[in-house]
Nucleic acid binder design. Structure first.
Lengths: 173, 173
DNA sequence: AGAGCCATGTAAGAGGTTACATGATTAG
DNA sequence: CTAATCATGTAACCTCTTACATGGCTCT
């Protein structure tokens, strides 16, 4: 699981973190369907959901057990493992590096950080702020010759400024 | 070629639009390599570049001719067709629909619109502004019950506001 | 009786990344 | 003589999207 972002998988871990007794695919799918807050920031079709569950199981982040339900297809119950919980927590404690990742990755982190531990959310916001402030600093120091690249930099600065101001507005919570 | 964005293919068309006599893959690749302004907004490795060229040829947007260069592998010269030019122009005249597409798609449009025809760039900026203003309007009318969704909406509003202000700063040009 | 829910997936394909294959030529 | 440049690609591998397959059960 290590390589990249894959926010969907962490969202699954996040959902399982609040379900002591585990949960099955169809159940998790509901959290990603229309009307649910998560669906506003992250879309996840059944096909991919089941795919991610298999991957997480192979990676040891969740454990799987089968429950017969009579006539229906048997439920695959997934539970967060200790290793899975550690990965989740460590992910929730790392800010995203680019402004464009605020809209998806960071929002997912924030959503679960708030649910699992409010102080974790506060720390996350603080770290994200200092990351973006550093980024903003480095954008300010560029001096491109090309007028087009000047515009590009100005766009990035203004997007980053907006994200910083938004984060600051969250902070007093 | 119709379905989706694929800004890289339009960037190729854009480069060919300023080369009456056509250009070959290796040559185009230079425009996407480090130090070039395009590389700041769009990365394109050789593998994908050649792949796109084949697609564009199949779609009739470029025409291909082979030139023997003695010992080296023969150059494949690509030229923009009339149909290709029409697609490019029509693409340059359509604003992007979401704020997140400003950073890539819109910047590519702006880059080539400015090079090909300044009045086209002015029109593009104007249309993009009205699209984003409409979007901003609709974001302002939401009233989510959930405090988390309120934050999400505030983030989107602030990002859209920043993009609008940036576009306005471009306009007097 | 038919619609929609439960519950799991597979299949096909679009689109992209990274790395490598080839083989001559030119620059240091 | 070695490294980089020219010039074309292929191969393997991911990720995600969309659509469908299966088949019983529940509600109206």
């Amino acid at each position: 699981m290590p390589p990249r972002e894959r926010p969907a998988e962490y969202a699954i871990l996040g959902l399982l973190a609040t379900e002591e007794s585990g949960s099955h695919g169809y159940d998790l799918a509901r959290s990603f369907s229309e009307g649910e807050p998560l669906a506003e920031i992250l879309r996840l079709e059944p096909g991919m959901l089941y795919h991610h569950l298999k991957r997480l199981e192979r990676a040891g982040a969740v454990s799987q057990s089968t429950i017969q339900t009579g006539s229906r297809p048997p439920r695959q119950i997934y539970q967060l493992t200790e290793s899975g919980r550690e990965r989740l927590i460590s992910w929730l404690q790392s800010p995203v590096e680019h402004t464009r990742e605020i809209r998806l990755e960071f929002l997912v982190k924030l959503y679960f950080a708030r649910q699992l531990a409010p102080d974790l959310a506060a720390k996350l916001i603080e770290m994200q702020l200092s990351t973006l402030r550093e980024l903003r600093e480095s954008l300010g120091q560029r001096e491109p010759a090309d007028p087009f690249l000047t515009s590009v930099t100005e766009l990035r600065q203004s997007q980053t400024d907006a994200a910083i101001r938004w984060l600051e507005s969250l902070q007093p919570v």
